[in-house]
């Protein structure tokens, strides 16, 4: 089936739109009229999706959104299958609680991208905001599976409380990358901010550039972990090229955070 296309009728300003209903799970078996009738929230008012978007197509697991929709929240939240392509920016909470399928964002993603997701792939061609792949306040764990690939920069606390899965950032990260991580893998190609891995219990943070570590991380050895070869080969499938020498090179391994369990690791090229 051809994709269902959504176009904003009027640019959104002021109060953002909450549109969990933009999900392939809900579009797959619905006619155009039924899709238009799906509920969205605008402030404290209940509306129909069709009040804000022009809908073309029906009964498809593929959704194309003509952006930017930077003030539309919860796009693809809890989706389990299918594909969403956003031609432009997307608002907060995109792909949160996601369990499967794919979201491609051609612009930037706001905060809380893929928070507590369990599966699937989120690919952002621009930047992402705070707490991508992290946990919501009060939750024990963040991302529990799946992949987030961000080709630009990210803000604070990305991957915080992460439990499983993979976050790849080809740009820079601000502070507290992987803070309180419980497991999983973060691969940062650019420069890390302060307190990377602060409070991490387990998990792996691969930093392609030198990073200022907390004093609660201890140097172990310089070696060539075979796992990185598997990871970097896998990244090629996502179209991510690792720097020359990364696959065959040596890595300095630090373990920490010793202020906590201390079984996390940060790997930095030797």
């Amino acid at each position: 089936m051809p994709p269902v296309t959504l176009r904003l009728k009027e640019p959104l300003t002021g109060v953002p739109l909450e549109a969990e209903s933009i999900s392939p799970d809900l579009f797959a078996d619905r006619s155009r009229e039924e899709i238009e009738a799906l509920p969205v929230a605008w402030g404290n008012e209940a509306h129909r999706l069709g009040d804000f978007f022009q809908v073309d197509g029906e009964r498809s697991e593929e959704i194309e959104v003509e952006g930017p929709i930077g003030r539309v929240k919860w796009v693809g939240s809890a989706m389990t299958r299918g594909r969403i392509v956003v031609h432009g920016d997307v608002g907060m909470h995109a792909g949160s609680y996601m369990r499967g399928g794919e979201i491609l964002i051609e612009g930037n993603a706001a905060d809380f991208l893929g928070v507590e997701m369990e599966g699937g792939l989120i690919h952002v061609k621009g930047n992402a905001g705070h707490r991508a792949g992290a946990a919501y306040r009060g939750s024990k764990y963040g991302m529990r599976g799946g992949i987030i690939l961000i080709e630009g920069n990210v803000a604070h606390e990305v991957g915080a409380y992460m439990r499983r899965g993979l976050i790849v950032i080809t740009g820079n990260a601000e502070d507290f990358l992987g803070a309180r991580m419980a497991a999983g893998t973060i691969c940062l190609f650019g420069q890390a901010g302060l307190r990377t891995g602060g409070g991490m219990q387990k998990g792996t943070i691969v930093c392609m550039r030198p990073v200022e570590l907390l004093p609660t991380f201890a140097y172990d050895c310089t070696y060539a972990p075979v796992f990185l070869r598997i990871l970097f080969k896998g990244l090629k499938h996502l179209g991510v090229q690792t720097p020359p020498g990364a696959t065959d090179g040596s890595w300095r391994r630090y373990h920490g955070d010793l202020a906590d369990v201390g079984k996390g690791e940060i790997l930095i090229p030797a």
């Binding site: 599976g145 992949i147 499983r164 899965g165 993979l166 893998t185 792996t204 598997i230 896998g234 079984k263």
Partner: peptide, 9 residues
Amino acid sequence: ISKRLEPPI
């Protein structure tokens, strides 16, 4: 250490 890699990669 366990590492679980998803199908896309």
